[in-house]
């Protein structure tokens, strides 16, 4: 199995790596690029803990081959804050206690950011359905939904 050379952009930075043809983007991020913010909860697209965006689309990085990252733009949790300034979603997750163990949090933040870019003013139901692929076992989701909504309100300038 010959490794593949991939040129990509991750969180705005041009990045090159080599990977095995059957290696997932998640494994590349975690094991080759030291970007361990994306987590493997299942490896089969059922939990959303590995959420990233590829060319602006929300995906599970466990269901993308590393080889497919060639020529695309990948955004991960590590690129969400702007230097020392947290994204409003990150700040509201802390302020509203929207995390307990925190292992699902990176995936949920990436997913929620993708939602608010598409729909800045979602209903609770829309938030819940958008995030249905991000399992959280600690919170019962209540505070997560509220944190997304309060971040959305701030981002709308309310």
């Amino acid at each position: 199995m010959k490794n593949i050379h991939v040129s990509t952009t991750i969180n705005g930075d041009p990045t090159e790596f080599i990977c095995a043809p059957d290696e997932s983007l998640l494994d590349v991020l975690r094991n080759r690029l030291a970007l361990t913010g994306a987590k493997e909860g299942c490896g089969t697209g059922d939990c959303g803990a590995c959420s990233v965006t590829v060319d602006g689309r929300l995906v599970c990085s466990c269901l993308v081959l590393g080889a497919e990252a060639d020529g695309v733009e990948v955004e991960t949790i590590e690129g969400m804050a702007d230097g020392d300034k947290l994204h409003p979603l990150q700040q509201h997750f802390i302020d509203k206690a929207a995390l307990q163990c925190g292992v699902c949090t990176p995936g949920i933040l990436v997913a929620a950011k993708a939602l608010l870019e598409k729909n800045p003013n979602p209903t609770d139901t829309e938030v819940r359905y958008w995030l249905a692929g991000n399992l959280c076992r600690c919170t019962g989701y209540d505070k997560i939904i509220k944190a997304v909504q309060s971040a959305a309100a701030e981002m709308r300038g309310e």
Partner: peptide
Amino acid sequence: IGSTQVQGR
């Protein structure tokens, strides 16, 4: 089919 993430692909 699947989640928002799965729909992306």
